[in-house]
Design a protein around this nucleic acid. Structure first.
Lengths: 326, 326
DNA sequence: CATCATGGCTGACAAAAGTCAATGCAAAAG
DNA sequence: CTTTTGCATTGACTTTTGTCAGCCATGATG
């Protein structure tokens, strides 16, 4: 929690410097303090979200391909991370674009659902600092064991910290060892209430998981590689908030899903702005499944991925209605 | 209107510099252009609202006096511009605070009404640049003759320009020479429609005018000093959007008001966020009238003015209901 | 066809901002 | 009561940024 007495001077410095356009030495003089301190205060002001600097991300949405994809799939908005020569590494660029877009989609007082994965973690890591008091960030799915590196609660917490928002974690494991236990835990008032509020979110952020053996579910031991492979043969196509979905993006009635502590897929679909971010080109099929299942209204992808989706939609003769437009 | 081809590089530079935190020389290298140009692009990006830097104005709202005034009057929010030793000139500071607060009150897609006066003009003059496409700024009252320095349409236009918003001017004089003509003009479809949309605004910005002989209405020749004085004796207490109001903030049924092309006071009261900014201590009585008339939900004043209002409210035993809280 | 005006771009310099080791100061620990 | 520890603060130094006169290309004009 912030220390009031000290904040005051930071606010003042930030105001004089950024709003009045004074120089650091002028601010230092007025506040009767050394310029070096002002420089430090200003850094803090930025980190604390007292000042926020945002850049338009029109650069990524203002693209023919993005428009085409929106028209073809019925998605509300698409942002394309280009892969051209002078652009940056697209894999590294995507989380930055995603973070910037995400920030823009937040309104005052919103409740925001955040899931988990490498992508979401990287987005959290480059999320700009902002002063969004009144915003609540909730965790969409349960936690993994401690040793695993991209923990769901870390994503939520880090995003909430950067936004100066309130973070609400789901204090439950992602996967339990028995269906009975999962059922009982879901009935616990604390957990039940929290899961119930998810459909009240105005915005959600997640990626889609693959079903290869490098899937997080396999790496964290929730499923063995063999089990995952079997699920693939049974029609599994991807993972949303820890739960397996089939090729049409529907919840699979399987042991894993029944043992999973996570947001009900219906609740997720009920969220108006569903922001899906996919970095890896290998996640094409999971992405298609997620789109068919209506898990995205806002999409951030690479240009090549966008082209592949467009191709698929054209060859399959899919239309706007297939992607669950609101 | 912006030139697309050139904007692209500015967007890119702004993105790399502000979002990625690259140095200017790094950006220059990547974009294969001189660093000096980058510096220039960045300035433009700021002026065009491609990047926007905003500072929290908590400094001015986070004040005991502000809280007290809100509690006493029922205003939604009050911002106090301090007058203490180390502070800046409060008269010069107020427009800056007002502009910053105003910007914060805007939401996407809002329609905003802007009136006219020295204060509003100064606010427009220090309004930060932002990228608020989809926002519409409408003029609340008719125009004055060309020679006058603070023209209503300039306020609207300048604010719209800085915000990258659409500006809609009211193409009619503020005061006509006959009531009949004013009535006929008000019935003109173009004008009527525009005046009708005013109550749809989510936010309005104005100051309150005095009824001394230095009033704008006198200086621009709409009323003679003698007429104004007479109006004062008849109960006029201030001016809102060019129209005289009495001590209770009610519309006065007088020749001037009937000849006035301006927003209906009822429409203005219907706007949810009515931001009133008063710079001069001499405008105390007009301000009180405006508050009683329900013309403010958000107020920006000096500390001394705030204290005077508080005193008045306490001695008169006025309560929250008197200031037209929504 | 030469001339002029326009506006973007650059190099070089001046100004401003960032950084960090050293210092001081106050609260916690011994 | 002294020592230690942890910060906030500073001065001196380095790096980064802002600026502006002058250059070049382009396109309009006489």
């Amino acid at each position: 929690m912030p220390i009031r007495s000290n904040d005051q001077i930071i606010h003042k410095a930030a105001w004089l410097y950024y709003t009045h356009g004074m120089r650091q030495d002028e601010v230092a003089q007025r506040l009767e303090i050394s310029r070096a301190s002002i420089a430090m205060y200003l850094r803090r002001a930025r980190e604390m979200g007292i000042v926020s600097i945002t850049t338009s991300n029109e650069l990524f949405s203002d693209d023919v391909l993005a428009r085409e994809l929106e028209d073809a799939t019925g998605l509300t908005s698409v942002w394309i991370v280009p892969e051209d020569r002078q652009a940056m590494d697209p894999a590294a660029e995507m989380p930055v674009v995603a973070a910037s877009v995400f920030l823009e989609l937040i309104n005052k007082g919103d409740r925001i659902g955040v899931a988990w994965g490498r992508t979401v973690y990287h987005i959290a890591d480059v999320m700009p600092f902002a002063d969004l008091r009144g915003v609540t960030v909730v965790q969409l799915c349960g936690n993994l064991g401690a040793p695993y590196s991209y923990r769901p609660d870390q994503c939520t917490t880090e995003i909430a910290r950067r936004l100066n928002a309130e973070g609400i974690n789901l204090y439950a494991p992602l996967v339990l060892s028995s269906e009975r236990l999962a059922e009982e835990l879901r009935s616990e008032p604390v957990i039940r209430e929290q899961l119930a509020t998810i459909s009240d979110c105005q915005l959600a952020l997640y990626s889609v998981g693959g079903i290869e053996e490098d899937s997080h579910l396999v790496k964290c031991g929730a499923l063995s590689a063999a089990e995952m492979h079997a699920m693939g043969s049974n029609g599994a196509a991807g993972v949303i908030a820890g739960q397996l979905i089939d090729r049409d993006g529907q919840w699979m009635d399987c042991g894993h899903n029944r043992r999973c502590m996570s947001a009900d897929l219906g609740s997720i679909r009920a969220i108006k702005k569903r922001m899906l971010v996919v970095q890896e080109d290998s996640k094409f099929e999971p992405l298609v499944a997620a789109l068919k299942g209506g898990f995205a209204s806002h999409l951030v992808v690479t240009a090549s991925m966008a082209r592949r989706i467009l191709d698929r939609w054209n060859t399959e003769g899919l239309d706007r209605n297939s992607s669950g437009k609101t």
